[in-house]
Design a protein around this nucleic acid. Structure first.
Lengths: 231, 231
DNA sequence: CGAATAGTGTCTGTTAGACATTATCGA
DNA sequence: TCGATAATGTCTAACAGACACTATTCG
């Protein structure tokens, strides 16, 4: 009921942080960017920034702008994870950070961006602010959703084979899956369509069928009722 | 990068809205409060308020304070749902609302609070701001989680019988459940403990065993891998 | 005793995983 | 032909739901 910051109190800092996730050599990795401003200047942290009321349509747009501006990454799969808040998480004052997870194939990452690094979430260094907690929550969310949905396909490129996709699921879930069951699930989900090319070149074995995600599932997840890799 | 609102731009409004949910006569209902200030003064809306940087430890504390102050509701089950943002959702300007769901047994609601009303989510009126979307997202979240977790016990009082709990699950999920399977699941989840009293008085049939939630699951959910009411 | 609901035993169809078999490439 | 991996067929164990049966109360 009392009006917002009227001059008596400093305004609440409103920011967005992005947990950029990808798979590198079957390891789930998060993208960090060396900070170019205080506080924690020079320290690797989650890419993020202030919400710009004058240009952002909403916080999702802020996340997209941050990725585009700082990493040249356009239109990745983006999903809100949670919002972190409090007086202590940022030394500048009481702050709110709306956290987003971005899932991209490794090939889409231009690691030439200055100060960018990709580190396995299993060997995460100490991070400034509460970025360690943010990564933890984002990774848990992605793993949980991956059990029941098509989320991991976001780590694949445009075309991929079923063995590749199974390996991606296994990497994200951290357990090996039954091939027959996995294929049955992918068939039930009905989210893939075969491409008429094959993976033949250079492999001394039977080539695998190439698939692509049906267009309607590019931004929306397909859900499995009973789970994909449930013991 | 650029500092926050420096005077050139108005600060971003930082608020919390609470989707207070309960079951009344087997219908999922949301609690609305007639607004006592502009904008939309006099209109029923979600209970909410500004984040008070000087007194709230985080946004969860804001939600708890709002419920306590405006409805006299202490220590309900509270869970962050999502954050809504943008220039148009609040006529006062670019705003952020961190939405929380509160799940309480109907008996804990003191409906004597002035301007309070409980309406079934199936017959929700037009709501101010984007409160309609917020309720929709919160309800969807609660229903989805209820398939795999102990979340619906939050709608029960301290002691309850298994037939009661099953009815609660059925009301939330909107489908009837198999009695044997339901009891097997509750047993597997191992979140309940029998109380040595029974429900006998006044019922012309076999009394039901009373249960209570094990203390460790009062704030934390128990999860079922394969789902509780999956067709 | 009968009505009513609580609680349990058991059967069966479905599903998931293990294993085996066939297919198709390169060398 | 052999080695390697893709793709599929089939068997079995586990699970969920249907149904029936027993238990315990009130009137």
């Amino acid at each position: 009921m009392s009006p917002p910051a009227t001059g008596l109190f400093p305004p609440i800092l409103c920011t967005v942080d992005v947990v950029l996730l990808t798979l590198r050599e079957r390891a789930l990795c998060v993208g960090l960017l060396r900070r170019d401003a205080a506080p924690f200047i020079g320290v690797p942290a989650l890419p993020g920034g202030y919400v710009h009321a004058q240009e952002d349509a909403d916080a999702l747009a802020t996340a997209a702008r941050v990725l585009d501006t700082k990493l040249g990454l356009e239109a990745p799969y983006l999903e809100q994870v949670a919002t972190f808040s409090g007086p202590a998480r940022d030394p500048r004052g009481w702050s709110v950070s709306i956290a987003y997870a971005a899932l991209v194939p490794e090939a889409r990452l231009d690691s030439t961006a200055k100060g960018f690094s990709l580190v396995p979430v299993a060997q995460l260094p100490q991070l400034p602010f509460d970025h360690g907690s943010i990564v933890e929550v984002a990774v848990r969310r992605v793993r949980n959703k991956s059990v029941y949905s098509s989320l991991p396909v976001q780590f694949c490129g445009e075309r991929f084979t079923l063995p590749e996709l199974q390996s991606v699921y296994e990497s994200v879930l951290g357990e090996s899956l039954n091939k027959v069951s996995f294929r049955r699930k992918m068939d039930e989900l009905n989210m893939l369509e075969a491409v008429e090319g094959e993976l033949l070149r250079g492999n001394a074995h039977r080539p695998a069928q190439l698939y692509r995600l049906r267009p309607e599932y590019r931004r929306q997840l397909a859900w499995s009722e009973r789970g994909i890799g449930v013991g």
